[in-house]
Amino acid sequence: MNKNDFIQTVSKHMKSIRIEQQFSQEEMAEMLGISKKTLIQIEKERTVANWGTVVTLCALFNDSDILLNEIGDDPVEFVKLLAKEVAYEPKSKTLGGRVWWKVVTTDGDYVMQQNVISSHYRILDSKDVRWYSSFDADDAMHVLARLARNQ
């Protein structure tokens, strides 16, 4: 899934997310910093949200079951991945990937998993803390080897 696909997916589900979170169109539009008219156009799938609106929605509603089911990962972490924010440091505690993740390989105390929905990769330590995310399998393998070497 690339940035454009993600924008399309979030836009398509914006009405469902609004209803799931129990907000009116007026309340949702105000929270997202867009007009009600723009929100209606997005909800009717006549237009798509812009990147800023998608990022705001993910930040505000990162606990949305709809978002989680559509991307199979924490929405904020996924936005960071799409924005190409890459860091080799602990990021967040995860649930260990029991639903949307398959194990690709392990090295020492680290495991590399692939998301079954978006196909991106992540590296977790033995405590299920995320250290790295990428769409590039080779890059993730190099990071996995480096992390395992430095344990």
Rank of each mutant, 00 (worst) to 15 (best):
M1I: 00
D5R: 03
F6Y: 12
F6S: 03
I7C: 02
V10E: 00
V10G: 06
K12F: 15
K12S: 09
K15F: 09
S16I: 00
S16T: 07
Q22G: 00
S24F: 04
M28R: 12
M28A: 04
M28Y: 12
A29Q: 14
S35E: 01
K37M: 07
L39M: 10
Q41G: 03
E43C: 04
K44W: 01
E45G: 00
R46I: 00
W51A: 02
T53L: 01
C58R: 06
C58G: 00
F61V: 03
S64F: 09
D65A: 09
I66P: 06
L67I: 02
L67V: 01
L68H: 13
N69F: 04
N69A: 10
D73Q: 07
E77D: 13
E77C: 04
V79C: 14
V79N: 00
K80N: 10
A83Y: 08
V86I: 14
A87C: 06
P90I: 07
K91D: 13
K91V: 08
L95R: 15
G97W: 02
V99M: 13
W100E: 13
K102C: 06
T105M: 11
D107Q: 15
D107S: 15
D107W: 05
Y110I: 01
Y110T: 02
V111L: 06
Q113I: 03
V116L: 15
S118A: 02
S119E: 13
I123K: 06
D125I: 01
V129F: 02
R130T: 08
Y132F: 12
S134A: 08
S134E: 11
F135N: 13
D136C: 09
D138A: 10
A140E: 06
A140D: 11
